[in-house]
Structure formats: C-alpha cells, structure tokens
Design a protein around this nucleic acid. Structure first.
Length: 378
RNA sequence: GGAGAGGUUCCCGAGCGGCCAAAGGGGGCAGACUGUAAAUCUGUUGGCGAAGCCUUCGGUGGUUCGAUCCCACCCCUCUCCA
C-alpha cells in the first residue's frame, strides 16, 4: 500500500496526504516530538485541537521505560496513551549520537548503557524493528548511525556502510503488517557519501525515505547542500522525511526542496525555555522588556494562549517557574508550527508557495518583533 | 544592667594580614537549544576603561610596607541572664 499521495507540485515543493494506519495526514507535515509517548506539557486532546495529526515517539526511550513488551500488552502505544493520530517512532539512531558516551557501536548493533539505571542493553536493527512493532507505530524508522560533525571521511564512509547493512537487516526483520518502515540516508557532510548512501538505501523497498544526520553542529549551508545532493535521487511517489528539522525557516527551506515530513523538538523545548515564535520573529518571553507588556505573544495569533494571556503574565509565569507556563507556551508554539504548515500546504496547493516563502521570510527575519511594545507601554 | 554572637558587594552567605572587587548559592540581565538523559545549559552581575586605575566588606581612629581580616572606641542587630 502506498504511503503518500501527492496532489500538487510547485517547483520541487509538493503537497499531498500521508496514508497512515490512523488516518490521512496532510503533507508537508510537521510532527511534534513526544519522546516518551507524550508531547511534553501537552494533552492529546489539546494537540488534536491544535491540528496535530501525527507525532513522533522514541523506540529507545520507550524500550527502556516502560518497555515495549509492556506497551504491547497494553494494546500498543495508541491505546496505552490514548492517542488516535499518526505515530512515527524513531529507532534510537539519534541516541547513538546524543548519548555518545554511553554506547559502543558494533557490527551487529549498539551496546547501550541505560541513562536511567546504567543497565546494559544490546540493540540490534532487528530488535529495534520488533520494539517499534510492539509499540505499534504507524511508521517505524530503521536503526541508523547518526554520525557527529565533524567526522572524517573514513569514519563517515564506514558509518554509511554500516547503516546500509543495518537497513537491509531492518527490512528483513519487518513482519507483515500495516506498519510502514522508512530507510534513512546518511553520509555526513561528504556529497560523495550522501550519494552513495542514497543509492544504496533507495534501492531497498522501503515505504518512505528519510534524510538523517543533519543539524548536528554543521553550518546551515552545508546542511542544505546535503539535502540538495540527494533530494532529486529520491522517488517522487514515496514520502521524504527530513529528520530532526527544524526552525520555521528550515521548514520552508525543506518544503521548497521537496520534503514532506519534519519533526523537531524546537517548538516544544523552546516553549519550555521561554522562546516563543511570532510571525515577526522569535521572542524570549523572559526578557525584561515584556514585564508590563499587555499584548499577546503575537497580535495575529488565534491560539488559546494568545486569546487569553498577555506577554506580561506569561513572563510572570515563566519567571515564577509555574508549570502552567510550559503548557501555555507549548500550546502557542505548536499552534504556530501547525499554522505555518497549514499555510505552506495551502500555498503549494494554490501555486503560491514561492511568494509565501518570500513574504514569510521578509517579515519573520526582517521584522522587529517588539515594535508593539512601545505601543503597549505607550 | 550582665554574658555571649554578629554586622561582607541587590539578598543569603564564605573569607579572617598580601594570591580579594572578595568563594558559593539566590535573585537580576542576556544568550543558547534542530530524529528531547533538557522544568536544561552558558555567559554576565561596583565604576570607567586596553593593560590599568578608582570607590567598596557598619562608623571613626590606630598597628603594619600592606587590613574585609589585628587593636581601641562608637553605632546597630540577635540570643541568654537579671
């Protein structure tokens, strides 16, 4: 069964529908990250009301706690968590990167030391496919190695080859079922290796393909060079997923290049850390200049937070370490991302993505976001 | 009235002759965050400046080459006893 239907194209940009076991998801889509089976500070109901159709969870984290077998006995993560929407799980490949000191990469898999209790676990491609099947994700990801930046050519080459061998094993380990499995193109920041990885991974019969190993500390221009290097090699009739990206401007850049799916911790973590998105740029609600700002985070925003609360009050909640600030700020940032993607999809459908892209960027990057302050305080 | 303890940079609190513009918290200010070990992390927090200089550890005197640190007196807190 196909994983995506593409309805419109504008240049490389495209819009359509991702077909999951839990409904169709309009693309390009942004998936908020819910590592532990929950988008931090959110309820599923709130997510749904904000228009979130698909979230990402993490197989490595859920395997450690509460355990994938336990989740399976509870009827799968959808039932266990009460989430009815799309669910994609990352395999733990990113944790190979982010939990570097606690692991050892071998041919067969990765030896991990739990960050929770120090216990040792050997994670293989086959095992992580099984874990994701137990979790019941609509889309599972292959176990891959996300190499750090910078890495030598030799290291990256070996890493790419390992990722390819693992990808084959993942495919073989997959059982029949509705779950879709995506392969991941790696290759660090060597175009030659990106092309080789694309060639090898795209030759395998995955339901969709991801570009991984990006935004690991490299200059932004290098990241887009890598996307440009492989994007035209990717089949048009399968989903293209840019893993772990990104900032609002990154989403536009990705869509422009033909990406269908994104995920990132940015809207949620930034919200918890006081960074809030507006159409005129990002603000840090902790800044002193918002102390008596009676306006909403963003004048044009229709989210529940902006409809009710002032910047001054939201700042007070953050400064006072009130838990509700996590919720209110996350609602706003997730809403911003959902609105952004909705506008992006509409623009692609209408053939106006090009102008939307420029209008957004000039306002978002050029606008002085606290113009409003003088009005509020004046 | 008697006996103790103490007054340190925005706050709490170390320091007890030079390495002290003064540890460590807190608070303040700013920044970071890209398949979440993140309710996290980093920088900064007397003044002017490049080195450096100036003002600062309750007050006033003193000892000393040199005092936040030692001595004398004074002011103010707190505890206990009358």
């Amino acid at each position: 069964m196909k994983a995506i239907e593409i309805d419109h194209n504008e240049g490389r940009a495209r819009s359509g529908r991702l077909l999951t076991g839990h409904g169709e998801v309009d693309t390009p889509v942004f998936m908020p990250v819910g590592t532990q089976g929950v988008v931090k500070a959110m309820s599923h109901r709130q997510l749904t009301e904000l228009g979130v159709k698909m979230i990402l969870a993490n197989a490595y984290h859920l395997y450690l706690r509460p355990g994938d077998e336990m989740i399976k006995r509870m009827g799968g993560l959808h039932k266990f968590a009460g989430w009815d929407g799309g669910l994609l799980t990352d395999s733990g490949g990113y944790q190979i990167f982010s939990l570097g000191v606690l692991r050892e990469i071998k041919e067969d898999g990765v030896l991990f030391q739990s960050h929770i209790d120090g216990s040792r676990h050997f994670l293989t491609p086959e095992k992580m496919v099984r874990v994701q099947e137990n979790i019941g994700a609509d889309v599972a990801m292959c176990l891959d190695e996300c190499a750090p930046y910078p890495s030598t050519f030799e290291y990256t080459r070996d890493s790419v080859e390992l990722t390819t061998r693992w990808a084959k094993r993942c495919l073989e380990a997959k059982t029949d079922g509705p779950q879709k499995l995506f392969g991941i193109i790696q290759g660090g920041f060597y175009p030659e290796l990106r092309i080789r990885s694309a060639h090898d991974i795209l030759a395998l019969d995955f339901d969709g393909f991801a570009i991984g190993g990006l935004s690991v500390g490299e200059p932004k221009s290098l990241m887009w060079d890598m996307v440009d290097t492989v994007i035209d090699l990717m089949p048009a009739d399968k989903p293209r997923y840019m893993m772990g990206i990104g900032l609002p401007e990154d989403l536009l850049e990705g869509v422009k290049r033909g990406i269908d799916m994104f995920d990132c911790i940015i809207p949620t973590r930034f919200a918890r850390n006081g960074s809030l998105f507006t159409w005129d740029g990002r603000i840090n609600i902790k800044n002193a200049r918002f102390t008596e700002d009676k306006g909403p985070i963003d004048e044009g925003c229709s989210c529940p937070t902006c409809r009710t609360y002032s910047r001054a009050y939201l700042r007070h909640l953050v400064v006072s370490h009130e838990l509700t600030s996590f919720y209110l700020n996350t609602v706003h940032n997730v809403h911003f991302y959902m609105e952004l993607m909705r506008k992006v999809r509409d623009a692609v459908k209408n053939g106006t993505f090009g102008s939307f892209y420029h209008d957004f960027k000039s306002r978002y990057e050029g606008g002085e976001s606290d113009d409003r302050c003088s009005v509020c305080n004046g």
